[in-house]
Nucleic acid binder design. Structure first.
Lengths: 110, 110
DNA sequence: CATAATGCATAGCATTTCTATGTATCGCAA
DNA sequence: TTGCGATACATAGAAATGCTATGCATTATG
């Protein structure tokens, strides 16, 4: 399993990148993270929801309640424009750090 | 400048990767980070030393005092075997997150 | 001789993380 | 029909962490 500092640091960009592919809801996002990381990241719901709420408070994502055919209610989240921008910025920053860590810092990162 | 969660999460691997190229001391490490990141990461000494101490406490690096020709005393740090191992692990984990964030999680990360 | 740069160290405040807990519905098997 | 596991959202507050602010000391420079 991944180091927890990494999990924390990647939380927001990861959620944004999932929502960039279409709206989704809490439970499904947790499973998507597990799938994408090939079981190397495992989030609890208690870790996810606060991040979702924070992102919404910051205006990067928005939510709406949807009743599934099953009758169960789900809160679907989707990206807002500032969220797309934030995601792009996150990816750029990660690329820089990744380059510094792996490339020995002697090439251009652009 | 980079987001601070990222700076924090990359602290240990970054220091280890610098020391992997040879022993160094606090002040020089701070400058090396600045250089490598092309001024996009700027560490204060107050951020660095605690990390250095922590890494030493964990047995990943070791230190020795050296008197420079100038007469100034410097504490040189170098990698120990567990530190090399930790660095390799860090790099692996970063690669995974990087892949999940950029590659949409549909390819192999190995 | 004053200031900037070099050099190390740490207390403790501020912030953040995330565990533990609560609530509720649905599907299924015993 | 009842009990359990999976689904689904939410939050308080303990625990851990980051890093600013501060302290001290030496050397180079103007």
């Amino acid at each position: 399993m991944l180091r927890k500092e990494l999990v924390a640091a990647s939380a927001e960009p990861l959620i944004l990148s999932i929502l960039a592919e279409g709206e989704s809801y809490g439970y499904a996002i947790i499973q998507e993270i597990k799938t994408r990381s090939q079981n190397r990241m495992e989030w609890t719901d208690g870790m996810l929801y606060p991040v979702l709420h924070r992102l919404e408070r910051k205006g990067q994502i928005k939510s709406r309640w949807v009743e599934a055919e099953s009758g169960r209610k789900r809160k679907y989240y989707s990206l807002k424009q500032p969220g797309k921008k934030a995601l792009a910025e996150h990816r750029e920053h990660w690329a820089i750090v990744h380059a510094v860590l792996t490339g020995f810092g002697h090439q251009s990162y652009v």
